[in-house]
């Protein structure tokens, strides 16, 4: 029996009396049910629950909007939004801004490219806590970084990079850049290289090839990379506590949410902070995706393969 006849006979079989179909429905669809249940029960439901509970403040006779009123009237709460954005936005712009030219330069497959991507997964895998531990030693006044800069004569006195903005920003760079680079690399390698060659034969210099061909085609990937990198940076938590000034410059929004839940035990207020966090992320993502509407979105190859 050849494979065609098998396929044909199955086709006719499933049309008549396939054992796995009941009343025209494919029972194999049931395989998706446990997965959906997990996500609905543990992700969608808690989200809705948190949303509703943010409008049910704890305490007697509280107004339904009391939590939000509190958030936006207490400086130590509402200021966290600005502080988190002030960390997340510049670092994300830097991460993505560097990832684009770097991925572009390294887009031709080679052994070096493979080795590099392997090395870059390491900080992503280790996670923020371990990177924070390493940075605590590395960035310390007597750490290797300051010591090298002092020995090279580039500095008169050690840089203060811990317990302030810079420590957190650097940790976001170290965990965020590899992610942004890998995403941009996979977008860049997806663009048909003959397009750039065609542009070259038409007189485009390397700079123009990048600006006129690659950049417009990379915009969709760029926006998605930006959104994902930003959202990760906006949720910064352990490094903001360990490397930053959790009561000052790096009092990010997740610290506020954590305090509400585990120090004040005000779960409804904690959910409120979480909702504000989610909404801020959504707004930024919305703006970025909105900007994308103005760019070309379609295939990135130059014709039939």
């Amino acid at each position: 029996m050849t494979s065609e006849t098998i396929a044909a006979s199955t086709a006719s079989r499933s049309a008549n009396a396939d054992p796995s179909t009941v009343a025209g429905r494919d029972l194999r669809l049931l395989m998706i049910v446990p997965g959906v249940l997990v996500i609905v029960g543990l992700f969608v439901y808690p989200f809705i629950y948190g949303f509703i509970s943010s409008f049910n403040p704890q305490g007697e006779n509280a107004e339904w909007l009391a939590n939000y009123q509190r958030f936006f009237s207490e400086p130590r709460l509402y200021e966290t939004v600005g502080k988190t954005l002030w960390l997340a936005l510049p670092v994300t712009i830097l991460n993505v801004g560097l990832a684009v030219p770097f991925a572009f330069m390294l887009r031709t497959p080679s052994r070096g490219q493979r080795l590099l991507s392997t090395l870059l997964v390491i900080p992503m895998t280790l996670g923020t806590v371990l990177v924070a531990e390493g940075l605590m030693l590395y960035l310390a006044p007597n750490g290797w970084l300051n010591r090298s800069l002092l020995e090279l004569g580039l500095l008169g006195s050690p840089l203060r990079l811990l317990n302030n903005y810079w420590g957190v920003a650097l940790s976001l760079l170290i965990t965020g850049f590899p992610f942004a680079f890998m995403m941009m690399l996979s977008y860049t390698t997806g663009i048909d290289p003959t397009l750039a060659r065609a542009a070259a034969t038409l007189g485009a210099s390397p700079m123009e090839q990048f600006r006129r061909i690659y950049l417009p085609l990379l915009v969709p990937g760029l926006t998605i990379t930006f959104c994902l990198t930003f959202v990760q940076a906006f949720a910064v938590f352990p490094s903001a506590v360990l490397l930053g000034a959790p009561a000052g410059a790096t009092r990010v929004i997740s610290i506020a949410a954590y305090e509400m839940a585990y120090e004040e035990y005000n779960w409804s207020m904690a959910s409120t902070v979480a909702m504000v966090m989610g909404a801020t992320q959504l707004v930024i993502v919305g703006i970025v995706l909105g900007l994308r509407q103005f760019s070309y979105r379609g295939p990135v190859v130059g014709g039939k393969g």
């Binding site: 048909d192 003959t194 397009l195 060659r197 065609a198 542009a199 070259a200 034969t201 038409l202 007189g203 485009a204 210099s205 061909i213 417009p216 085609l217 070309y296 379609g298 295939p299 990135v300 190859v301 130059g302 014709g303 039939k304 393969g305």
Partner: peptide
């Protein structure tokens, strides 16, 4: 000379039209 300074017209097998 690099290709952009030779000024030859080239037609590619897969056309290589700029999709955007």
């Amino acid at each position: 000379l690099p290709p952009e300074r030779r000024g030859f017209g080239m037609v590619f097998q897969n056309y290589a039209l700029f999709p955007h």
